[in-house]
């Protein structure tokens, strides 16, 4: 029922980034992370930020949505920044109270690490925002395919990933219903978890697990009824093909890395 934005939700749109090959996007997402890590000065991080914003513009996803999609993870960003403020010391001291000491170096590092983390998260969520779970699964499977010769069950892993992603929202919904049903029977989930809370917790988890098993049984029956027999010889309705868009994406990222590294060497004094 709750339709809150979940991390990794797909944002349907027609754009260059959406139309890229999911395999390329999958790899580029990691390259993008590496590119962000290449930036070691505020200026180069700014350059990286410009590129990330540019990629979002190319994917036609409003920046506000992008931030909202990583919403819960922003806590991580804030926490990391706060830890940096407290533990990195040096330079001018602005505020001191007991063991709490806020210094120039601490603030600078907090800002830098916070921005870097934010960019990393935004880079990763660009992949999930522009790629359907089906495509991510397919990309994952194809990229693992070389490992299949070594005995890695690439197709099965891809299928597991796909099914897991597909059922996440389903289980969220069901958990909500079970939660309300047990609450109707007087279960108190908000009270002390050490006082009768374990009982309440099993009242949530066991129905959830039985429902997961039920879904698994139905799903496997439905797959077998459609003659699913594993990855051997399975074809795709729309096979993944590289196109000019992928060349554009790869070039854009190469330029980004070059620009970020170059920016590292630009002397900048505050």
């Amino acid at each position: 029922m709750a339709s809150r934005a979940i991390i990794g939700q797909y944002w349907p749109e027609e754009s260059l980034v959406h139309a890229m090959d999911p395999r390329v996007k999958f790899i580029l997402a990691f390259v993008l992370m590496a590119a962000v890590f290449c930036g070691t000065t505020p200026l180069s991080l700014g350059v990286a930020a410009l590129f990330v914003v540019g990629f979002y513009a190319a994917s036609r996803i409003p920046l506000l949505q992008a931030v909202r999609a990583i919403g819960p993870l922003l806590v991580l960003v804030v926490l990391t920044a706060a830890l940096n403020v407290l533990f990195v010391q040096g330079g001018e001291v602005y505020f001191q109270f007991g063991i709490i000491c806020i210094s120039e170096e601490g603030l600078r590092s907090a800002g830098f690490i916070g921005c870097r983390l934010l960019l990393l998260l935004m880079g990763m969520s660009l992949l999930t925002l522009t790629t359907t779970t089906l495509d991510i699964t397919a990309a994952f499977e194809r990229l693992l395919a070389p490992l299949a010769r070594l005995g890695v069950p690439a197709h099965e892993l891809g299928m597991i990933l796909g099914i897991a992603l597909r059922f996440l929202p389903q289980f969220m919904t069901e958990l909500g219903i079970i939660y309300r049903a047990q609450k109707s029977r007087g279960a108190r989930f908000d009270s002390n978890p050490f006082k009768g809370g374990i009982q309440s917790l099993t009242a949530l988890l066991i129905p959830l697990f039985t429902s997961a098993f039920r879904h698994a049984e139905t799903l496997s029956a439905a797959m077998e009824a459609r003659c699913y027999h594993g990855g051997e010889g399975t074809t795709r309705l729309s096979p993944l093909r590289l196109s000019w868009r992928d060349a554009v994406g790869i070039s854009a990222l190469l330029i980004m890395i070059a620009a970020v590294i170059a920016a590292n060497y630009v002397p900048l004094s505050f």
Binding site: E174, I177, A181, R185, T202, L205, I206, P207, S211
Partner: peptide, 17 residues
């Protein structure tokens, strides 16, 4: 009020635990 208003959800057997 939940003590005096009993709510039985759809497919309540799914909530047995």
């Amino acid at each position: 009020v939940r003590r005096s208003v009993g709510l039985v959800f759809q497919y309540p057997e799914n909530q047995l635990f």
